[in-house]
Design a protein around this nucleic acid. Structure first.
Lengths: 202, 202
DNA sequence: TGTACATCAGTGAACGCGCGTTCACTGATGTAC
DNA sequence: TGTACATCAGTGAACGCGCGTTCACTGATGTAC
């Protein structure tokens, strides 16, 4: 996931001669699509622009994705994969269970802030094929990691673990969204995720 | 806020003869716009369709709104006004402070579920004029109501009140969003806002 | 190693789409006198 | 009450926009023999 859209268009392959066959256009389109997404946001996304960046004609993507939605779904699935991976890293980074959870919260929000358009896209169901296997699997993967950690917490509040997972998820997700959408921008108080997670007694 | 887009197009005024001047086209456009928004979502919104529903030509809106963004901003501001009003109702509906907060949480989520596209729009800054006075004021109004209630709670956790406001807001907002975006749809556990708010010790 | 041929993965031109906005215009309204 | 006139709030035609997708095509690749 690297995004610099304004670079001069260069051939993705080292060979000096343009190759008629790309090699791995599917992967190249996903990467190009991520660039477009990052630069223009989910609403400004364009399949043609992704093709342009990949150095290929507008019709070419149809050989690898059924339509624009197909590419976007692949990108969203990759987003979930990255998120899940980071949550798992946080899960393994501490032995203290509360520390694990704090780490996951930070990782979740950091992901959203690092890839705002992708994070946005991941929940823009109207733009995605939500039946897609990868998309479902990677999303579930992320949820499971969070679930494992919350399950490991003996709570001060004696709520069912499932309520606590959804509580934490909602809070962290809401915090990420409100941050991205600028809702905290003009509030006098400084808003930190740490302070907020401290405020809930787990 | 009533939305039935598929009704036969009727003149908004009682007079049998079409009037050249509308009377209150601004208000009619806002209402028509809400219908479009509700039926097609924020992404499917179209100024022309709103004009069509209001029974007016495509150019007419320009006399009342600078552009499409202007109309959308007015709609979003009205959304915040409605939300604020409902939060204030919840605030006054109980004398118990925790009950107030629970009521506000329910009201917040209920609003999101009742007007999903409007709720969505209210945070779609790229589609709005976020400098608009009304938009800012009504949004602030809603926040203030929540703030008052949280300030009135003596917490088990001795966190600063501001951290608690943002915690509650994040949680409720995240819950609303995840609900709307279908993230809870395929989870085995039943997810209720009540259970989740119980899980945080306030 | 050479050849025939099927399949794959591109090209590039074309299509239709509804949109937001602009513009010269005109009908309706309200006000000054 | 009547008239002249400015202003307001509509019309409807036109424009340009970049988009996603389709299609007949062709160059490149790989495989069977």
């Amino acid at each position: 996931m690297t995004h610099n859209l304004n670079t001069v268009k260069t051939k993705p392959k080292v060979s000096t001669r343009a190759k008629y066959h790309h090699g791995d256009l599917r992967a190249a389109l996903i990467e190009a699509g991520e660039q477009v997404l990052h630069a223009r946001g989910a609403d400004g996304f364009s399949l043609r622009e992704a093709a342009r960046i990949a150095g290929v004609s507008a019709g070419a993507p149809s050989h690898h994705f059924k339509d624009a939605r197909g590419l976007l779904t692949a990108i969203a699935a990759r987003g979930f994969a990255t998120l899940a991976q980071r949550l798992i890293v946080a899960e393994n980074q501490s032995s203290d269970r509360r520390q694990k959870l704090f780490g996951q919260g930070q990782a979740y929000v950091a992901f959203a802030l690092e890839f705002p358009a992708c994070f946005d896209l991941m929940w823009r169901c109207a733009m995605l094929n939500t039946q897609d296997e990868d998309y479902i699997r990677e999303g579930h993967e992320a949820f499971l990691s969070l679930h494992r950690v919350v399950d490991g917490i003996e709570s001060v509040a004696h709520s069912p673990a499932s309520a606590q997972v959804f509580m934490v998820w909602s809070m962290v997700h809401g915090f990420a969204r409100l941050s991205l959408d600028g809702s905290f921008a003009h509030k006098p108080e400084i808003v930190s995720l740490d302070a907020i997670m401290q405020a809930v007694n787990l």
